[in-house]
Design a protein around this nucleic acid. Structure first.
Length: 423
RNA sequence: GGAGAGUUGCCGGAGUGGUUGAACGGGACGGUCUCGAAAACCGUUGUGGAUUUACGUCCACCCAGGGUUCGAAUCCCUGACUCUCCGCCA
């Protein structure tokens, strides 16, 4: 959420940002409502002030057993006005909130302006494309040869894009999760959090998924709860409605959760194999930092996500997202894309974002600085990493001519020493 | 699922329809004392909004939303959540 004062004073900046982000938001209407509400609020405050004063006098008169009936009848009128105004103000307030919750965050000035992913900027790459001397197989072939995933039975028991990891596939997936968690805890000094996979509406609004993306969420109607699309949601809301101490910042949390996404409207696009799933596992990193530290934190987190890929010996690249590809709540986002040689494509395995105070404002996460002043924290998060696509890259980059897969050394302790997956 | 209790500030915990933004206790912070510390004593200790150059003034907030009233933390209604016991179950 943006500061209403900021919108009021910089409507053009906000409008440009909305446009660059391909969002829709009626700022003029919002400002009109804001103005009207403030006028009414002013009237209300004055009337209440009057009412409070006179009520105190009435109290005194009654104590002294004097007659107050004349003032009482006058006050009746004010009381009615106050009631009407208060109804009106709360109605305006609701409308205003509904609008402001749909205003996206403003991209940083160094974010390239562009409509879609084709205008993302190459940032850096790591490692080299392995040279293969044989005909490569892609993920679907490798998964099948080694019997790592059962797609058909997944369809039977849940639906398409709900694969079942079986045997060594399940083992390798679990190994990746545990490896990543351990890595962030021991090498990057994160503290682990195990959170609910189902959250309420307020929580989902706090990080910015709602109201905009309601259609992309799995919703449990009976309780009005949502399946989380990422650990970011419960972990970031951990401190909702709290005022933190400056000395405790930064907080760094890592959390493994499944992620549930309806992927409404994306049918048929990149849905082969493990690329786009309704449920997938992910290890997430979340930080709460002082405003002046968030730029550095973002850079560190990109490297931390990259460290995982480097430890696994996987070639990847980093791109800086353009405005149109940067998500609703984010001010700046970098994606890590890992190389999948089977199809010679780069797959997004991590998205690292600085939200600045946008989420903190929505969820009301603040800290008291050394001057005693209360400020919003900055929040950041990044995948570290999503497992299915890491899985794809791993089996494709580590495939052998016979279709078997060599396990990277660093991962072997997590697979009871297994060196190779083969039939 | 059944029965009951509760929700007040950083925490614990009072609260009569009328100077209660809220007693009291604890914590935290500042000060006095001390070589230093503890103890003791003194003081400070909410958030958001409007207005003002500023001092300040005003408004709102005691789970949420309604209602009664000139006036609500206090009375009434609805809802959410928490806890306890029973039932069921990993």
């Amino acid at each position: 959420m943006l500061d209403i004062k900021f919108i009021r004073e910089n409507p053009d900046i906000v409008k440009i940002a909305i446009n660059n982000k391909n969002e829709k938001s009626n700022i003029d209407k919002l400002l009109e409502l804001d103005e009207l509400k403030r006028t009414k609020q002013f009237e209300y405050d004055n009337l209440r002030s009057e009412q409070n004063k006179v009520s105190k006098q009435i109290g005194k008169l009654k104590k002294e057993k004097k007659d107050a009936s004349e003032i009482l009848s006058q006050m009746k009128e004010i009381a009615n006005k106050v009631k009407d105004l208060s109804t009106e103000i709360s109605y305006l307030g609701d409308q205003l909130l509904a609008l402001i919750l749909r205003v996206p965050n403003i991209p940083d000035s160094d974010v390239p302006i562009g409509k879609d992913e084709s205008l993302n900027e190459f940032y850096r790459e790591s490692g080299v494309k392995k040279k293969f001397t044989f005909a490569l197989k892609d993920q679907t072939q490798l998964l099948e040869i080694n019997k790592l995933v059962d797609f058909k039975r997944g369809v039977k028991i849940a639906g398409s894009n709900f694969p079942i990891f079986v045997g060594k596939g399940a083992l390798l997936e679990r190994a990746l999760i545990n490896f990543m968690l351990d890595f962030h805890i021991t090498k990057h000094n994160y503290s682990e959090m195990k959170v609910p996979f189902i959250v309420n509406r307020k929580t989902m609004t706090g990080t910015g998924q709602l109201p905009k993306l309601e259609n992309d969420m799995y919703h449990i109607e009976q309780e009005d709860l949502f399946l989380i699309p990422t650990a970011e949601v419960p972990v970031t809301n951990f401190f909702a409605d709290e005022i933190l101490l400056e000395k405790d910042l930064p907080y760094k949390f890592t959390s493994y959760t499944p992620s549930f996404r309806r992927e409404a409207g994306s049918y048929g696009k990149d849905t082969k194999g493990l690329q786009r799933l309704h449920q997938f596992n992910k290890v997430e990193m979340v930080r709460f930092v002082k405003p002046e530290d968030s730029d550095t934190a973002l850079m560190e987190m990109i490297q931390e996500a990259g460290d995982i890929l480097e430890a696994l010996g996987l070639h990847y690249r980093v791109v800086k997202l353009c405005t149109g590809d940067t998500s609703f709540a984010s001010a700046k986002t970098y994606d890590l894309e890992v190389w999948a040689p089977g199809t010679n494509r780069y797959l997004e395995v991590s998205s690292v974002s600085n939200f600045r105070d946008f989420q903190a404002r929505r969820a009301s996460i603040r800290f008291r600085d050394h001057n005693g002043k209360v400020q919003f924290v900055h929040t950041l998060n990044g995948s570290g990493l999503a497992t299915p696509r890491t899985f794809i890259a791993l089996i494709e980059q580590y495939q052998n001519e016979d279709g078997s897969i060599t396990i990277p050394e660093i991962l072997r302790p997590y697979l009871q020493g297994l060196e190779k997956i083969s039939i």
